[in-house]
């Protein structure tokens, strides 16, 4: 606790201060999840339209998910070196299975009669997509984003092994210098970040689910 409470460890601008590491951790998480979404969205739309592509897609994403993260990132070093790219590529790929699953489930769960009524009342295709499909799908998609984000926050802990700063720095540095309090600080901060992010996204999900049941993620 000593480490956490010492204000010197929170100084802004200091590259290894808690504040800087927290920001770095959030940044690598946000970048990975956003790129993950950008990749998963079109893939999910393809899977919805051509249902036969769903199984191969989700199988490949599932296999990628089982690769050990440390080994995966190490394998990329010859190609991308000790850069953020080495960390982000696996994080993006890990998120695919849960994101694709949830986006597909979100769209498939939409009552086709609601869409039919949308068209029947004179909505344009764009209006149906923005006013009906998206608001109905979003809560389930956010449920998937929640799971993906929390997982990403966890794995991003090992980023410092590849020269990319994150809260994991405190843990590895603490181990190297046998500074138990620093290790504990790292563990507590990563856990707190994961829990708080999960709660914040749950709040977003609640907000988006007005009028409906808050659905769990399709994991």
């Amino acid at each position: 606790m000593q480490y956490l409470l010492d204000t010197r460890h929170w100084i802004l601008g200091e590259p290894t201060s808690i504040t800087s590491l927290l920001v770095a951790h959030l940044r690598i998480t946000a970048i990975s999840v956003l790129i993950g979404l950008a990749v998963a969205f079109p893939l999910a739309l393809v899977a919805v339209r051509h249902t036969r592509t769903y199984l191969p897609l989700i199988t490949v994403a599932g296999i990628l998910y089982t690769l050990p993260s440390l080994a995966f990132m190490a394998l990329l070093i010859p190609f991308t070196g000790l850069t953020a790219t080495t960390v982000v590529i696996p994080l993006v790929l890990y998120a695919q299975v849960v994101l694709i699953r949830n986006i597909v489930a979100a769209i498939q769960a939409i009552d086709p009669w609601v869409v039919e009524v949308g068209y029947a009342m004179g909505m344009t295709t764009r209006q149906v997509q923005w006013r009906v499909v998206l608001p109905l799908a979003l809560p389930v998609i956010v449920a998937g984003v929640r799971v993906a984000t929390v997982t990403t926050i966890g794995i991003a802990t090992i980023a410092p092994l590849f020269g990319v700063p994150s809260l994991g720095y405190l843990i590895f540095q603490g181990f190297n210098t046998s500074y138990a309090d620093q290790v504990m600080a790292g563990v507590i901060l990563v856990s707190a970040l994961a829990i708080l992010t999960d709660l914040a996204l749950l709040g977003v999900q609640r907000l988006l689910s007005r009028g409906r049941r808050v659905s769990p993620a399709t994991a």
Partner: peptide, 10 residues
Amino acid sequence: IQQVGLFPHL
């Protein structure tokens, strides 16, 4: 229609 099709989010 029979299925009503009210928009559940509105």
